[in-house]
Design a protein around this nucleic acid. Sequence first.
DNA 1: CATCGATGTTGAG
DNA 2: TCAACCTCGATGG
Length: 341
Amino acid sequence: MPEGHSVHRIARQFRLHFVGKRVSASSPQGRFAAGAAELDGHVMTDARAVGKQMFLEFDHERWLRVHLGMYGAWDFAGDITADATVLAANGRMGQTNQKGTPEQSGTPGELGTPGQPVTVDAAGEDSLHSIGAPRVARLRMAEQEKLGPGADTFPPEPIGAVRVRLLTHDTVADLRGPTACEVLGAEEVQAVIARLGPDPLVDPGKRSEDRFVEVVRKKPTPIGLLLMDQSVVSGIGNVYRAELLFRAHLNPHTPGRDVPEETVRALWRDWSKLLKLGVQHGQMMTMDRLGAKQKAAALAHREDRHWVYHRAGLPCRVCGTPIAVEMAAGRKLYWCPKDQA
DNA sequence: CATCGATGTTGAG
DNA sequence: TCAACCTCGATGG
């Protein structure tokens, strides 16, 4: 489900609350028992996102590669600091931990205690008003971010089929429903990354733009398919594709080699901009050209958030022409037949 | 409560 | 080109 911006957000969450800490790894569901055993007891040393893929590095040169696919998600709980902007937008501030945990709060070397859940005190807060209320924040990070039901003990019981649980002394991350989850060596990680097109946040600068332009401009493949090809450019999914093409006034069927070079460059720069914006806000912001009032509506209601995505048959926000939808490589492609003629 | 569809990728045919 | 993967919110009865 998540497109590139979500995966970058998740990697950041790991950098903030896991990197530098010793991790207890397990597979409550059982399907990743061997992989978890290989990571168990090691210190997480890095967390990186490339496109929709995430790589977690451990201190014995082993990496966990995770791809969330269609419905994968990470559930974070414990001493995590949620993004107030996003949670406010979702209208569920709940029991968010607002302590502002510093990045280096963890003590490397201290092991989590999976077998012995302990009741967590609302540290430094008066608990009289919160009797019966969950004290451990739970944050689900997939395509959307939202607070979960919370918990009274740390670590909380895994909910659902948890493929991997990564536990530190004060934080926990549960992975469910991923397309890919495997332990790799550094060389294998490099091989995976080498097969991916440029990611504007990983490879900023002109070299990446040139690479993207060069590849697109030599292919007969429709631009609507090229934007979804992770070997051409990383991180774009079905929503960003539709929105980028609309913003470029570009017909999705145009062969890559027929798209004017300046338009291809504009596409790359717009993707860079939307990706940064998405990471910043924790959700897709494809209608940044709007005024403040419309922007607020877009933040509050998902259905008001896009120019063309998921708007088949509805009037184009610019010209009123009904938005068209067609299947392209098994995915729904939305576009305005007039503004993207 | 059953069913459907989804922001993705892989591999079979 | 299509099913499988395996999750969950939206929708309908």
